[in-house]
Amino acid sequence: MSTTTTIRLEDDLKERVSEAAARAGKTAHAFIRDAIAESVAQAEFDAEADRICEERWAEFLRTGEAVPWDDVKAYMRATAAGKKAKRPLARKIV
């Protein structure tokens, strides 16, 4: 189900939206709708990333264990080069 929402735009922004929509081959309505959907998706992604970060930070504070950055870099370089690399393990960080 869809509902109607009214937004008020300054004249210059409305013109910019119309021009950008035309360049994208969309109507101004579709352009605005897509922009809102992208913004909402980004906000949801950011919220989930924040949740994961908080969860992992709490785990680090509880255990004191993490994978050292140098170990991560070496693993990623080896993997990117197509080499078989042993996944680094978390250990106590002093």
Rank of each mutant, 00 (worst) to 15 (best):
E55P: 01
V94N: 09
P68N: 06
R8E: 12
I36C: 14
T5R: 07
I93F: 00
D50H: 11
A90C: 06
P88D: 04
E10G: 13
A90H: 00
R16S: 05
P68F: 08
A21Y: 02
E38I: 07
S39M: 14
V94Y: 10
H29N: 09
E38Q: 13
R56K: 15
T63P: 01
V67A: 02
L89V: 07
I93R: 11
A58N: 10
A30H: 06
A35Q: 06
K73L: 09
I36Q: 06
G64T: 00
A74G: 03
E15H: 09
A47E: 05
S2P: 12
A22D: 03
E19T: 10
E59I: 14
E38D: 14
A78V: 01
E55V: 02
R33H: 09
T5M: 08
K73D: 05
E59P: 04
W57C: 01
R87K: 15
K26E: 12
G25C: 03
F45E: 07
Q42A: 08
E48I: 08
A24G: 02
P88R: 05
T5Q: 14
A47V: 00
D71H: 04
T6G: 02
R23T: 14
D50A: 15
A37D: 08
K84S: 11
A80V: 05
W69G: 03
L61P: 00
A90S: 06
E54G: 12
L61V: 12
A85P: 06
R8Y: 03
K86R: 14
R8H: 09
H29E: 14
Y75T: 12
K73F: 06
T79L: 10
V17Q: 00
P68M: 13
I32D: 01
S2R: 15
S18Y: 02
I7G: 10
V17A: 05
A35E: 08
G82A: 01
Y75P: 01
L13S: 05
A85K: 00
D70K: 08
F45T: 09
K86C: 07
R16P: 00
R51F: 04
R91L: 10
D71Y: 03
E65N: 05
T3R: 07
I32T: 00
I36K: 04
A47I: 00
A43T: 04
A47W: 01
R8W: 11
E54M: 09
A85N: 15
I36P: 08
S39A: 15
A78H: 06
K92G: 09
S18C: 02
R87C: 05
R16L: 03
E38R: 15
D34Q: 11
D50M: 15
E19D: 06
S18R: 07
A30Q: 15
I36V: 14
R62S: 02
A58D: 11
S39W: 15
D11Y: 07
A49F: 05
A21G: 00
C53L: 13
E15C: 04
T63R: 01
D50Q: 12
A80K: 00
E15Q: 09
A20M: 10
R87S: 05
A24R: 07
A22Q: 10
T63M: 06
G25A: 06
D50F: 07
E48R: 15
L13F: 04
L13E: 02
T4E: 09
T4C: 11
A37I: 12
T79V: 10
T5Y: 12
K73V: 14
K86D: 11
A81H: 13
